[in-house]
């Protein structure tokens, strides 16, 4: 990244338009899992395998939006000594390679105060912030702090979000609209791909920013279906966190899965692992 006035919001926008795939690919990794150093290697492996953006999770004691795999990874990262300072160093290390969007629960943003938190985040070169337990009614202070630093405060919408509310959220979206594809927490499940088109169409009608689909997307086939449904981006988390946890060489294991997802988004089915579950 150049030292010019390119903001995080700009970098995210460029990543979506520059992606040669049918949809931009955004892998999620849990900061500090299995270690902080390995997180950096995992993030680099993701970018090497075709990731356009990176979502970096901050481990938290009470992650209400997360299913058991990511919850457990966060618990282990905390037990291994991961701290917010450590995860921000991961963001600093990865930001030159791809726009990094930090995923962090509200209480950790409030702990030092929103302005101070965003200031520290901006200093790492990170581009965006997702706070999964901060609906727009509670977000004004964090949004103002992010806007002041050019950091994209990325909001979430869910299948339960009614139309008027979707429009309110879409208007305030920065970076992209994180569109939750299933009613539930994060996790691998057979998301109903035939609902993707509807969900994506509604989301896109509500906002000017790209629409990225996440939660419940775990296979190359799912990723391709999300792209075909019109999603501008695809977020895959739990599948990758599981890969990191199951392998003695986490960055290689995660990189392999990301490569398969990227291939599917280029329209080339990866061998062997395709098909709906």
């Amino acid at each position: 990244m150049s030292a010019t006035a390119t903001t995080g919001i700009d970098r995210i926008a460029q990543a979506f338009t520059a992606s040669a795939k049918q949809a931009a690919l955004m892998p999620y990794l849990m900061g500090g899992y299995p270690t902080l150093a390995e997180s950096v290697r995992i993030g680099e492996a993701c970018v090497g395998a075709g990731a356009d953006l990176l979502e970096l999770g901050v481990p938290y004691s009470d992650p209400l939006a997360d299913g058991p795999v990511i919850h457990e990874a966060g618990t282990r990262a905390l037990a291994a000594g991961a701290s917010i300072a450590g995860v921000l160093e991961v963001a600093r290390a990865l930001s030159p390679s791809a726009p990094v969007v930090l995923m962090c629960y509200a209480n950790m943003v409030f702990a030092p105060g929103a302005e101070e938190f965003v200031e520290r985040l901006a200093q790492t070169g990170a581009s965006g912030l997702i706070v999964p337990d901060l609906p727009f009614e509670e977000a004004p202070a964090v949004l103002a702090a992010c806007d002041a630093k050019g950091i994209a405060l990325v909001p979430l919408v869910a299948p339960t979000t009614p139309p008027e509310r979707l429009a309110q959220i879409g208007r305030r979206a920065r970076g992209f609209l994180y569109t939750v594809s299933v009613v539930g927490t994060t996790g691998e499940r057979a998301a109903l791909a035939d609902r993707f088109a509807d969900i994506v169409a509604h989301a896109k009608a509500s906002t000017e920013v790209p629409v990225a689909l996440g939660f419940g997307i775990s296979t190359p086939a799912h990723a391709a279906q999300a792209a075909q449904a019109g999603a501008d981006g695809v977020i895959v988390g739990t599948r990758l966190v599981r890969a990191a946890g199951e392998s003695s060489d986490p960055s290689r294991a995660v990189g392999e899965v990301v490569a398969e997802l990227a291939a599917a988004l280029r329209g080339r089915p990866a061998s062997g692992v395709d098909g709906l579950l």
């Binding site: 939006a65 337990d133 609906p135």
Partner: peptide, 13 residues
């Protein structure tokens, strides 16, 4: 007070 919850729950609240 307030409502610091995932978006999925907001309509239910």
């Amino acid at each position: 007070g307030g409502q610091y919850v995932p978006e999925t729950l907001m309509p239910a609240l």
